[in-house]
Computed example of a mutant assay.
Amino acid sequence: PVFDSATAKVIKADLEKKKDIVDLKDKERVLPTKEEHKRMTIPGLIGSVIGVLVGIVPGTGGDISALISWDVCKRVSRHPEEFGDGSVEGLATTCASNNASIGGALTTALALGIPGDGNTAVLLGALTMYGMVTGPTLLSNSAPFVCRLYIIMIIANLIILPLGLLSAKACIRLLSIKSQYIQMAVLLICCVGAYSMNRNYTDVIVMFIAGICGFFFRKYDYPLGPMILGLLLGDMCETNLRRTLMLSNGSYLQLFTGPISIGLIVLILLAIGWPFISNLFQKKKNKKVEG
């Protein structure tokens, strides 16, 4: 996105952005309209379910669940062309999925002692410092503590809601920052993050090469979501596939015989084939209308 924005007409984009910001400032409405609520209901439910399921998987987090939810909702949406340009449905599903993944990650962390993401890893570390043993025994030996923890999370979400609504108009002013400054700040943070992982300049070079490839993918309308998911989940999938084959003595049938695996495969096939199924229904509907 940085390279794409840098090669675009920045002055024109800034003028259009300032015009949009003025329009937003003039509007007193912060909450969505009734029509927007209707459009956000199904994507929000889809994002919530995917967020919980992805959050339960160790090593994942809100970013991965948001990407998966966004892609699934784009496939099943009646307005897929709006995704990527400020779609209300895309915003609803990604936010719902990001929030729901916290609950799934917390469930795995408290029940099994395995952190689902970075936040739950910090939580488990804090609990260990206070002498609490995480895992299955935590729910049986410290059930009141777990109940209080979930109550605190519910209260925190209730407090965040009015704070977010009150600060919504103030946050609009952040959009008035020039695109050049935002691009340089993002590029600097990316360079620091790439170098800090292994303290190797080669990682920074790889980052720039990946950025250039991503620029051409955007330019020629190649979807970036599947590639990002592949990079994030590829290593984890290979590791768990090897572990599964070791437990099943090299048999792949274990991947297709368990009830959980069958359910996941059905959901994957539905997510992939839904656009074709919806097109068939739409063609039949058009034929009936024409008839």
Rank of each mutant, 00 (worst) to 15 (best):
V72N: 10
V72D: 06
V72K: 03
V76T: 10
R78H: 12
R78G: 15
R78M: 14
H79G: 02
P80Y: 04
E82F: 00
G84N: 09
D85V: 07
G90A: 06
A92K: 12
T93A: 03
C95E: 15
S97W: 02
N98L: 08
N99W: 06
A100L: 03
S101A: 03
S101Q: 02
I102Y: 03
G103A: 13
A105M: 14
L106Y: 01
L106P: 01
A109L: 08
L110G: 04
A111E: 07
G116C: 05
G116Y: 02
G116Q: 03
G116L: 06
N119C: 11
L123P: 03
L123W: 03
L123E: 08
G125L: 10
G131L: 05
V133F: 01
T134I: 13
T134R: 06
G135Y: 02
P136K: 09
P136H: 05
L139G: 05
N141A: 13
N141P: 02
S142W: 04
P144S: 04
P144I: 13
P144F: 01
F145T: 14
V146P: 05
Y150M: 07
I151E: 01
I151Y: 01
I152A: 11
M153T: 12
I159Q: 11
I160T: 13
L161R: 13
L161Q: 09
L165C: 09
S167A: 10
A168G: 05
K169F: 02
R173C: 00
S176W: 00
S176C: 03
K178Q: 13
S179K: 06
Q180Y: 01
Y181G: 02
Y181N: 05
V186F: 09
A194N: 09
Y195E: 08
M197C: 05
N198S: 11
Y201Q: 09
Y201D: 07
Y201I: 12
I205L: 15
V206A: 07
A210G: 04
A210T: 05
G214E: 04
G214M: 02
F215S: 04
F217I: 13
